[in-house]
Amino acid sequence: MFRNQYDSDVTVWSPQGRLHQVEYAVEAMKQGSATVGIKSETHAVIVALKRAQNELCSHQKKIYEIDTHSGVSIAGLLSDGRILARFLQTECSSWRWDYKLPIPMKKLAEAMQLKLQANTQYYGRRPFGVGLLVAGYDKDGAHIIQTDPSAEVVSMLGTSIGSRSQSARTYLERHVDEFEKSTPEQLIVHALLALRDTLPAEENLSAQNTSIGIVGKDMPFKIIEDELVQTHLDQVATHPRNITAPGSGAAPAAGRQSPAPGGAGAPEPMQQ
């Protein structure tokens, strides 16, 4: 049952210099449905794929507003993610109380990193089983910040986390040069095309399972959901899907998939 004798506690090193509990938490993140974040010079976009537990269930919300200039999308244990989203909201509002200004994204990333790291070092705690993409706009411009349970917090041009996210990253790598000068509408289409690549062939993006968050210059953070997504999906539909392309996610075992086992297998019901 046990992977080895060094994996039952976050604070115990394996002889290979690894923290297995932390790595398991990263696996939990990889089983959540995918989310993609990209930015241009002036805007940042996050898109996410929502899951429903069953036919009678509504889709779980994946994108949260943090402040007027920032929002977050979640992959992994959604209950952990909501705790972190609430934490970020509190950080933003207390900064506003102190300075009467929105919080700089770098400060937000630093606060996030400190909170995540503490859970990888103290006995009796567990890391958050969730990864976040934080989109924000401040005086330094647009930002996409990626976090994971190992407390690695990085600023990205474009990125994706969650199940089959390698397919989305493959799309992003091919088109990264186009992002900088893109309009907000073009950014959304790029993000949705990347997100579509994480889906198996028989599934597609729909107004029910897709949500979009956008923020930028003179544009407060806005969540686009349900019927409002449709116009963007219509744009995406004009780009035919190349199912046979490598990494397009036609089969779970496709070559470009994430090397981790969590990237391929059937999703656990707990992860969103």
Binding site: D98, Y99, D140
Partner: peptide, 15 residues
């Protein structure tokens, strides 16, 4: 400075 910014007059006034 820790996050590479110089505090501006508005922020300092607010603080």
């Amino acid at each position: 400075k820790r996050f590479d910014q110089d505090i501006g007059p508005k922020a300092l006034h607010g603080y």
